[in-house]
């Protein structure tokens, strides 16, 4: 029973980890960049959803769409101005550009929004469904459903649309893609925008049970990287699987080990998986 409860909790929370990580994976797949500032876009998405709730009365589950749109547009601009110039630069330069971006975004948010911890109040946020002896938290379940929905939408976009196919082609072989007449720069911009927009969406749907402040992203950085690496950098489906794996490991390990060590367990699994399967649990397939 305890184990079943832990599995359910882990699955729900893990689905959300997965969706906020998809963008990280997508950006890596298409541009070969590890974006350390990714979690800052999660924070931006949460702020957008909070303001939508506070001033428009929108439930964060709906505000999430606004988060996606605004952060998507912002992400495209960031890609154009900051990321594009260093695409050809050494890997270390890319890492530190995104680290700098993280510092800038966090502190810009601090100056613009203040350091308050903001949270929303929704009718469902402190209730749960009871199935037999299992408690299923409503905000977790809704966030999970929204997360899967957006994950499926991205998958359909990549697999079924012309733009999505062009994006995957860019990921596989930029040179060939260019020769085929694909505007790879536009693809990069779109991929970055969709990637961070999706994370913002994920941030919005978890707002009903969390609080947002400028540094909220820092709690997610390591979780996102773990999810993405477990699933295989660059793989969208892998990110979801990796996210769920992270959630389940965290919640099941709490049955055996002190909760204080939940991240240690996670890191050990992480390093072992890398050692045994350096390409992640899910083999990379396209973007």
């Amino acid at each position: 029973m305890q184990l079943l409860q832990a599995l359910v909790d882990g699955l729900l929370i893990g689905g959300v980890y997965g969706v906020v990580s998809i963008g990280l994976s997508l950006v890596f797949g298409v541009m070969n960049i590890v974006n350390f500032a990714h979690a800052a876009f999660l924070m931006l998405g949460m702020f957008v959803a909070w303001f939508a709730w506070a001033f428009l009365g929108l439930d964060p589950l709906l505000g999430a769409f606004l988060s996606f749109v605004l952060v998507f547009a912002f992400g495209c601009a960031v890609q154009q101005v900051l990321v594009r110039p260093i695409l050809a630069a050494p890997q270390v330069a890319q890492i530190f550009l995104t680290v700098g971006l993280l510092i800038v975004l966090e502190n810009a948010a601090l100056m613009a929004f203040g350091a308050d911890f903001r949270s929303v109040q929704t009718p469902y946020q402190t209730s749960a469904f009871r199935l037999g002896g299992i408690i299923v938290s409503k905000p977790y379940l809704y966030a999970f459903a929204m997360a899967l929905l957006s994950g499926a939408a991205v998958w359909a976009f990549l697999e079924r649309t012309a733009v999505g196919r062009a994006m995957r082609a860019t990921a596989q072989d930029p040179m060939a893609a260019t020769l085929m007449g694909i505007d790879t720069q536009r693809m990069h911009r779109l991929a970055f925008g969709v990637g961070v927009g999706l994370t913002a969406f994920g941030g919005a749907v978890i707002l009903p049970y969390l609080t947002v402040s400028p540094t909220v992203g820092s709690h997610y950085v390591v979780l996102m990287f773990t999810a993405v690496v477990l699933g295989g950098l660059g793989s969208v489906a892998g990110a979801v699987v990796g996210g769920i794996a992270v959630g389940v490991i965290q919640s099941v390990s709490a049955l055996v080990f002190p909760i204080q060590l939940q991240n240690l367990v996670l890191f050990v699994v992480f390093i072992l998986v890398l050692a045994l399967r350096p390409d992640g649990i899910v083999r990379r397939r396209g973007a």
Binding site: A89, A93, V99, G100, L102, V104, L110
Partner: peptide, 23 residues
Amino acid sequence: QVAGLSAFVYGAILIAVILVEPR
């Protein structure tokens, strides 16, 4: 100055350095 400004400027200078010369 206003909270966050010094860290913000520091981050912006790092970005500028990398953009001017990634090596």
